[in-house]
Amino acid sequence: MKSEFTQLNLDLIRYSLVWEDSHSLYEALEIDQTDHLLVITSAGCNVLNALLRNPASVTAIDLNPFQNKLLLLKKHIVLNHDYEVFYALLGFAGKTAVNDAWNTLMKTLASGEQSFWSAFFDEHPGGLLTSGKLESYITSFYDTLDQDIQDKLQQLIRFDNIKAQYAFFKAHLDNSDFKPAFIAYYSEENLQRGRDSNLLKYASDPIGPAFYDRLLKQVSSALLSANFHFRFFFFGLRNLPADVLPPCYRRRNYAFLRQQLGKMQVVEGEAMEHLLSKYGSSITKAALSNIFEYISQEEFGHICRALIEEPDRNLRVVFWNLLNSQGEGRGNSNGRIAVKKRPLSSKSSFYFKNIIQLQFVPEKTVNLTD
C-alpha cells in the first residue's frame, strides 16, 4: 500500500532528535517482555528507549535510509565504544570532544562507513543531535534574539515553582519582542526551512500562533527546568543536566542498552505497509511518531479499515498529532477500535497537540463481549 509518504524528500538526515518523549511513549505503550514493537526510526532515540523496557523485540522502520543509517551508527558506537565516546559524539561535550571521539570511532568503522561519516562530521562538527535539518533550524532561533531576551529565556529554567515561572514569562516575555519573533520564525513560510512542506499540506490553523499558544500552556503547567525538549528547543545542547536527558543517552542505562541491542532489527520501508504484511503480523504495539501528519483523513480511515480486516489483529498503535486531528473522532468500527486521546505529559515537547492511542482488538473478543 503506497501512500503520500512516498512523496517526501529522503536525501538527508531530516531529524537528529526524536521529539516524542520517552515518558509519553512508556505510558501509552505499557511495554512488557512479551511485546514485539514497531517504532518509527527517526533519529533512533525512542527505538533505543523502547529497548530499555526489555521487550521481546523492536523493529525500527523508516522510509528514509539516512535515518536508519543514523540509528545503525548509534548501535555501532554503543556496541564498540565506552559511554564517553557516545556522549561526545552526540554533542554534549562540545566540538573538540566530538572531533576527538570521531577519531576514536573511525578506527572501528568499515572503510565505506568511514568516508560517509567523515564527510558528515566535517559538515556537522557539533555532533549528532544538532545535525538534522529540523534541529538545525530550531536551535538557530535562540541566536536571532537580542541578549536581553536570551537572558530572560535562560531565567525560565531556573525556577522551581510553576506559578512563579509563568508569572515571569507573562511579565517579561509575553509582552516583549519575543512573541512576534517566535510566531514569525515558526510561520508556515519559515518552518518549511526546517520541515518538509508536505507536513503542512493538511494543517488548518496558522502554525506560529498555534505553537505559541501551546508554549504558553506548557509554561503555565510544567516545570521547564526538568523538560529536556523545552531546553533543547531553545538552547540546544547548552547546559543540559544529566538527569533530564532521554533515558537512552544516560550513563546509567548504557550497559543495559548494549545488552538489549540484539533484539533490534532495522527495516527500510513504510510502517503501515509493514504492519499489514506477514512480517508485521507478530507486532503487538507500534509507536508511529507523527507520520499521519502527512496523509489525508481519507487515507487514515483506509489504514484503520485495513487493520480491522484482519480478524485476529490485537494491536496497540500510538501516534502524536502536531497540526492535524487524526484519530480524534474515530472509534467503534463494530467495537474493533478503542480510541484514547492522551494529554501531553510534563516531559513532552510543547509543540505537539496530543497523543492518540488506538487499540485494535480481535473480532472474537468483541463477539464474546456482545
Rank of each mutant, 00 (worst) to 15 (best):
L129F: 08
F159T: 11
L145M: 12
W117K: 02
D160M: 03
R158A: 13
L128C: 09
F159L: 12
S118G: 15
Q147D: 11
D146G: 03
P125W: 04
T144Q: 12
Q147C: 05
T130R: 12
F116Q: 05
Y142D: 07
F120R: 00
F159I: 10
Q150N: 04
E123V: 10
G127Q: 11
P125M: 06
I157M: 14
T144P: 00
L128R: 05
F159D: 08
I157E: 14
A119N: 15
D148V: 12
I157G: 13
F159Y: 13
A119R: 13
D146R: 01
F116G: 06
S136N: 15
D122A: 13
L129I: 11
P125Q: 10
I149L: 15
L129A: 14
L156Y: 00
L134P: 03
Q147F: 08
G127W: 12
S140H: 09
Q150R: 11
Q147M: 06
S140Q: 12
Y137R: 09
F120S: 00
L145D: 05
H124F: 10
S140L: 07
H124Y: 11
A119P: 03
T139H: 01
S131A: 15
K133P: 01
L145C: 10
T139E: 04
E123F: 09
P125F: 05
D151M: 01
Y137S: 12
G126A: 15
L129S: 11
T139V: 14
Y137K: 13
G132K: 03
S131E: 10
E123K: 15
S140P: 01
W117N: 07
H124G: 04
Q147V: 14
H124T: 04
K133W: 00
I149P: 00
Q150E: 09
S140Y: 04
F159R: 08
F141V: 09
D148L: 06
L153W: 02
I157W: 12
Q147Y: 05
D143G: 00
T139Q: 02
D151E: 12
A119L: 14
S131D: 14
